[in-house]
């Protein structure tokens, strides 16, 4: 067996140290991680991937801690990836999500990994998707991903997770905030945490109002369904299995209240997360979501590979001389890109 094969076997057998080490390889984008990911891929696709996002201080980590405790009580296992921001100045980071997850210490059914975003802006690190795959292959039944404290546009999580929970806290603005575009649009479950604080009721009402506005007149298509439409090749494949997703009623995101610090309302949120998972499987929408995600992943990988190849082939002056000609306005960037692509393809 190859080294990578042995490493993958160790992860499948539950070796936590190897699991932790491989996650580091992935984070550092070390070449050694690639064959391990390849070997593990066939074992992925079993876990329920749950994303938890929301503004800094809304209580994401505390909620994740409560979810994990409850999942363990119900007999499941949990992998947690908690992402915090990297400093754009020093490249360093303080990763503090574990502070809220101390109840989970000493439990072999839980694995927590903190990740720094390392310059990525969508609320996740560039390699979070790969880390999730390894936890999935390692056999954790639920993988929870906690994003960087997110504002309005960190929606990457919705393309990564099966179920996205958006956490809000009271007192974060008036009801215009809720009709703006952004993370509220990607929620499968909406949570108003710190519900014992003043303003919780009006936060709930504002969110419910937003949902009703969306449903007046023509039924609004969810962001997810529009996303599927934008991935035509994957959709062709998914439609062969389920002809018309539009004939299936869309999931309506519930608005729930919690006091995470005391565990109040957490059970209802976990039930809603599970209902959404049941809905995705029962309706067939899971196939569409997976297909769209995989098409996008392959697309990004191809771009990366082709780009590297092209840059490699046009190295040795060609690219650089093009830069010079562009600076002198001798050529326009559109023509320059076309020329470079042609030359890259020619010498192949």
């Amino acid at each position: 067996m190859t080294d990578a094969g042995r490493t993958a076997e160790a992860i499948l057998a539950g070796d936590r140290r190897t699991l932790a080490r491989v996650i580091t390889w992935i984070e550092n984008q070390e070449p050694a991680s690639r064959p391990v990911l390849s070997a593990l891929y066939a074992h992925t696709g079993r876990a329920h991937l749950v994303g938890v996002t929301g503004s800094p201080g809304s209580g994401k980590s505390t909620l994740v801690n409560e979810f994990a405790k409850l999942i363990r009580l119900r007999g499941g296992t949990v992998g947690i990836v908690a992402v915090d921001p990297t400093s754009p100045f020093s490249g360093g980071a303080v990763l503090g999500d574990r502070i809220r997850m101390r109840d989970l210490a000493g439990d072999a059914g839980v694995f927590i990994r903190s990740m720094a975003s390392r310059g990525s802006l969508g609320g996740l690190a560039r390699t979070t998707g790969e880390v999730i795959k390894v936890l999935d292959a390692a056999g954790f039944g639920t993988v929870i991903v906690e994003t960087v404290g997110a504002g309005q546009s960190e929606v990457e999580i919705a393309r990564t997770a099966h179920t996205t929970v958006v956490v809000q806290a009271p007192g974060m603005g008036d009801d215009i905030q809720v009709i703006k575009a952004g993370i509220l649009e990607v929620a499968d479950v909406l949570v108003v945490n710190k519900a014992d604080r003043p303003g919780a009721d009006s936060a709930v009402k504002a969110l419910q109002m937003m949902q009703r506005l969306g449903r007046d007149g023509r039924p609004a298509m969810s962001l997810h369904r529009r996303w599927y439409d934008s991935q035509p090749r994957a959709m062709e494949w998914a439609q062969a299995l389920l002809p018309d997703l539009n004939s299936v009623d869309e999931w309506e995101p519930p608005v729930l209240q919690t006091v995470a610090i005391s565990g109040e309302g957490v059970e209802e949120v976990l039930d809603a997360i599970r209902s959404h998972w049941d809905y995705l499987q029962r309706s067939g929408e899971l196939k569409f979501r997976e297909a769209a995600r995989i098409e996008r992943e392959l697309d990004l990988l191809l771009r990366e590979k082709l780009m590297a190849k092209l840059l490699n082939r046009t190295r040795g002056g060609e690219f650089e001389s093009m830069l010079g000609r562009l600076l002198e306005r001798e050529i326009d960037p559109y023509t320059a890109a076309e020329l470079l692509v042609h030359r890259g393809a020619d010498c192949g």
């Binding site: 990297t86 400093s87 100045f89 020093s90 490249g91 360093g92 980071a93 303080v94 990763l95 503090g96 574990r98 502070i99 101390r102 903190s114 720094a116």
Partner: peptide
Amino acid sequence: ALRDAGMEVIYTG
């Protein structure tokens, strides 16, 4: 200080 020196610091409380 370690963050400012470019390290990833996991703080557990």
